[in-house]
Design a protein around this nucleic acid. Structure first.
Length: 465
RNA sequence: UCCAGCGUAGCUCAGUGGUAGAGCGGUCGGCUGUUAACCGAUUGGUCGUAGGUUCGAAUCCUACCGCUGGAGCCA
């Protein structure tokens, strides 16, 4: 009777070109409607946005139980894939047998009507079953894949840099401490300080805020490398663009200057947009319809246009002459504020803008000092709606200059012996940048809160699930 | 962390000092190749928490918690 059948993903079933006599489908009930002699079940298995319609006739032995199926229940269906008699879908399944795998009672929080992202965020374990979040996380997967593809097509080597680091100054942010010390029995040195020699690694350790320094070591051996992994910042940032745990992509290239770096960042952003537009059409249409009506136009515009490049001091001049009333002052030597970045990218150029050559005072120690002695080869890629999506630089490859930079930043070069060794032995000009994976995903999907593009978001005061 | 706004039924919200409401959802019934189905009935609440003002508080005041938007820090 039940000859073995391997289940078909709904995505594949919907793309069939001919009817199939025997097919198996499994998934979760999105909605059910009764007709006179049968019941319509809309089934979704997450393989795609669309549901598959199941016809459950009242001749099925468990029809009474099927009529009690509610949204959220899981079932396994065997039947025939046939052309639908109704409008709205090409195919449907006339079921021979429906096994109820798991019921869902009426406390199931997802209804078939629309829910706000804020409500769905509170049920993060169930929200991937919604249309919006199913789409977000399918696109997230594709985007990650496209990133690897982009780099591999260009001969980059994927490097896994450590997540636990002993370096407390990678140039960015507050760190999470990693320790096995019992908070109730803290070992002390004779002068009362915490004795980290008794800790697991016999020294203070932290969760990484960047894999850059380690990536530099590998770039100065394998020439072109990238990292792609989780990153942790213990900053008390409460915004729609910040998370305590996020993923970052950090390419690092030997024999590469700032121009090459900016070229790569631009090429990558465009490549990723094109890839997702091509491979996630259904999802992108949903975002364009329900999340951001201008999304597709903006993305296509970004792909077509050359990104604007402007050095920091020209950007400052432009902002000063803009006639715009800004809340914060603009002057050489001050950081550009969000409102300034937004003006540049959204109002003035109306496309992504790369600002480069910032004053050394407002940038980290590892950035290469320009010949003017005042600026460093930093670059920030600003994107409409999100702001900074890429931050990078050419690195200081000259040993003595790097040591000077460190001292100027109140760092002890002796603590960075291995990093300085890279300049001591066969140093070369090299460059790289960091791309926030979730920010890129926000840009590509139009989703405006970073918490809604991470499966289970970690933010200050919030680490549920 | 700072500024502003919001917190009322499972969800979305109305109610701004005097007996807690609607739509959707759920449940029951009807109708029906339906498709955010339709029609009827019904269910549903410690008004975020704790204090205070008042004869009386969802409504006014204070603190705290949470969420949203903006800012800082950044990716």
């Amino acid at each position: 009777m039940d000859e073995p059948l391997s289940p078909t993903p709904i995505k594949d079933a919907l793309h069939e070109i001919a009817p199939i006599d025997a097919i198996q489908i499994q998934g979760w009930v999105r909605t059910r409607r009764d007709s006179k002699d049968f019941s319509f079940i809309e089934l979704n298995d997450g393989s795609c946005l669309c549901n598959l319609q199941i016809i459950a006739k009242n001749t099925l032995p468990n029809y009474a139980a099927l009529q009690r199926l509610t949204t959220g229940a899981s079932i396994s269906v065997r039947g025939a894939l046939v052309a639908s008699q109704g409008k709205g879908q090409k195919w449907e399944i006339v079921a021979d047998k429906i096994d109820i795998v798991g019921v869902a009672d009426d406390s199931y929080p997802l209804q078939k009507k629309g829910h706000t992202p804020e409500f769905l965020r509170e049920i993060a374990h169930l929200r991937p079953r919604s249309n919006l979040f199913g789409c977000v996380f399918r696109v997230r997967s594709r985007l990650a894949f496209a990133i690897h593809q982009f780099f591999h097509e260009r001969g980059f080597v994927y490097v896994h840099t450590p997540i636990i680091t002993g370096s407390d100054c990678e140039g960015a942010g507050e760190l999470f401490r990693v320790t096995t010390i019992d908070a109730k029995k803290v070992p002390r040195t004779t002068d009362g300080e915490i004795d980290y020699t008794k800790d697991f690694f016999a020294r203070p350790t932290y969760l990484t805020v960047s894999g850059q320094l380690e990536a530099e070591a590998f770039a100065l051996a394998l020439s072109k490398v990238y990292t792609f992994g989780p990153t942790f910042r213990a900053e008390n940032s409460n915004t729609s663009r910040h998370a305590s745990e996020f993923w970052m992509i950090e390419p690092e290239m030997a024999f590469c200057d700032l121009d090459g770096n900016m070229d790569l960042a631009e090429e990558m952003v465009k490549y990723l947009i094109v890839d997702v537009r091509k491979h996630c059409r259904e999802e992108m249409e949903l975002f364009a319809k329900f999340v951001d009506k201008e999304l597709l136009g903006r993305l296509d515009f970004v792909v077509q246009r050359r990104f604007q490049r402007i050095n920091y001091s020209d950007a400052v001049d432009l902002l000063k002459k803009s006639g715009e009333k800004f809340e914060f002052p603009i002057d050489y030597g001050l950081n550009l504020q969000s409102e300034h970045e937004r003006w540049l990218t959204e109002k003035h150029f109306k496309c992504p803008v790369t600002v480069f050559n910032y004053p050394k005072e407002i940038k980290p120690f590892y950035m290469r000092l320009n010949d003017d002695g005042k600026t460093v080869t930093a670059m920030d890629l600003l994107v409409p709606g999100i702001g900074e999506i890429v931050g990078g630089s050419q690195r200081e490859e000259r040993l003595e200059v790097l040591k000077q930079n460190m001292r100027w930043h109140k760092m002890d070069p002796a603590d960075y012996k291995w990093y300085l060794d890279l300049r001591r032995y066969g140093t070369v000009p090299h460059s790289g940048f960091g791309l926030g994976f979730e920010r890129m995903l926000m840009f590509v999907t139009g989703v405006s809160n970073i918490r809604d593009v991470i499966p289970f978001a970690r933010t200050p005061g919030s680490a549920e699930f």
